[in-house]
Amino acid sequence: MHTPDFDVVVVGLGAMGAATLYQLAKRGVKVLGIDRFTPPHDLGSSHGDTRITRQAVGEGAAYVPLAIRSQQIWRELESELESELDVQLFEQCGVLVMTSSATAPAADSAADFTKHSIELARRNGIEHEVLDAAQIRQRFPQFAPIHDSALGYFEPGGGYVRPERCIEAQLTRAQALGATWIGGETVTALANEDGLVRITSQGRSVTAGKAIVCAGMWSSELLGAPFDQLLRVCRQTLYWFKLAQPTPFAPRSPSFIIHGASEAETCYGFPPVPGEGSMKIATEQYSATSLPDTLDRQVSSAEAEQMYRQLVAVNFTGVTPQLVKSAVCAYTVTPDSGFIIDQHPRLANVTVVSACSGHGFKHSAAIGEALAQRCVDGRSDVDLSAFSLQRFSSGQAL
């Protein structure tokens, strides 16, 4: 076997890739990162100024230790880069998860998410409060229009992270620790050769002992079967609406997730960021599939008007219809909306880390650490077995 050019090559430097590159560099691994753009950028999933983080993750118990550890890593990064950061990476403003709808939700949908969050918090000793509609309105008056039947889960330890700054911070530290990374270069092929992995891009061809692919919505094209059948790209829209003055928002407002009776009545968002005078709010849609290279990256006025009418006006007071800005991102989604973190079934020494199904950023720092531990030590502190490919052939769901 020839001596590889690198111990590990990381393909894709978004949330997962940047975290993995940083954690490998911390462990003295000779590592190269490659991204088709120059991160942080707004052409994938890891952008939009803010991303919710919470510890009791309603999507499933397997995510809880990853979310908790990720928050710790962001605080560690803040300490490492204290003299270089102008804002915190992690803003602990709390998270409010609630079910609020005049229409009764389906038995297995919205209500379960809030109740599941409460149950996970109780099971894992996570500090939280359970609030009714009156308590929510009293503490957070911006939610005055919510339905009287609303049920809320408030987690004071949650909040939001700054995705672009988190990626930049991890790439900065990785480079300072000896990692190499290249932007503006697309990886076109992966192959096994003489016991190594050959990674071919538009600008170079290198070998590595291992490759970790974090290519997001470009994963299907690069990885082939079975990923081309498992992964879908779903366009998502983000909105920032101007606040009325004076604003009813409490000085310490939380990030929020509101579940209605259907996908169309469900949204998430963030407290006003100081100095911006607006509130960011977004939905999630999984019915329409897009292609990465033809994704519509413009938000239409009709989309903004519908967002305000259907979700902002019925859940908030003190938010005007004036759109300050908008953005588009893409979720790469699996059939059960869980992650895939597993070995490629046909390529030896290639680990696939996709798709994150729209809720990956809050877990990314810990996943990067776990992948680095597996590369160096052969095992990780956090159990990643729930994210294996096997569940799709065995019929198991997260």
Rank of each mutant, 00 (worst) to 15 (best):
E82D: 13
G60N: 08
R173V: 04
R309V: 14
S337F: 13
H116D: 07
A107L: 13
E265H: 07
K210A: 13
E263T: 03
G48Q: 06
R252F: 09
S109L: 15
A19H: 05
Y63I: 02
Q72W: 15
K115F: 11
E284H: 15
T200Q: 13
L171G: 05
E78H: 07
M279F: 06
K242T: 11
G318T: 00
R204P: 00
S219C: 07
F90I: 01
I281Y: 04
A111L: 08
V11L: 04
L291S: 15
S70R: 07
Q285N: 12
A67S: 11
G195Y: 02
H344G: 10
L398K: 04
Q135L: 03
P248Q: 07
I118W: 05
F387D: 08
D336C: 03
Y331I: 03
S83A: 15
V197N: 08
F361E: 14
G277H: 00
W181R: 06
K30A: 13
G28Y: 12
G260P: 10
K115C: 06
S287W: 14
D342A: 04
E155D: 01
T3P: 12
A244H: 13
W218R: 08
T38N: 09
K325V: 00
V161M: 15
R162D: 13
G48P: 04
A313Y: 12
R123S: 15
A56H: 01
N124V: 01
R139C: 01
P335L: 10
E305V: 10
I281Q: 10
S300P: 01
L171D: 12
P272R: 06
R69N: 05
M307T: 10
Q390M: 03
A61P: 09
M217H: 15
E193C: 05
G28I: 00
A144S: 08
T247Q: 08
E185T: 06
H259W: 15
A330M: 05
L371Y: 03
R173E: 07
R374G: 00
A365I: 11
T53Y: 05
F270G: 00
G209N: 11
A264Y: 03
D42T: 13
L177W: 06
S354C: 09
G269A: 03
F37E: 15
A225R: 12
L384V: 02
A208Y: 12
E221Q: 14
E221Y: 10
M1Y: 10
G184P: 11
S326V: 01
R122Q: 15
S278M: 06
G395H: 09
K210W: 13
S262D: 14
L131G: 05
Y153V: 00
G358K: 08
A215R: 11
I341D: 04
L85T: 06
G338W: 10
R252K: 07
G17P: 02
E127D: 14
G44V: 00
T283C: 05
L131H: 08
L177Q: 11
G159D: 10
M307I: 08
S394E: 14
E193F: 13
A244C: 03
R379I: 12
G48S: 11
E284D: 14
F227N: 08
A174G: 09
P248Y: 10
R122C: 05
F361G: 04
A189N: 13
L384Y: 04
A61M: 03
G183D: 12
H147C: 06
A134C: 01
S45N: 03
L295S: 10
R346K: 14
L222H: 02
F256L: 06
G184H: 09
H128I: 00
Q135C: 00
Q310T: 04
R235Q: 06
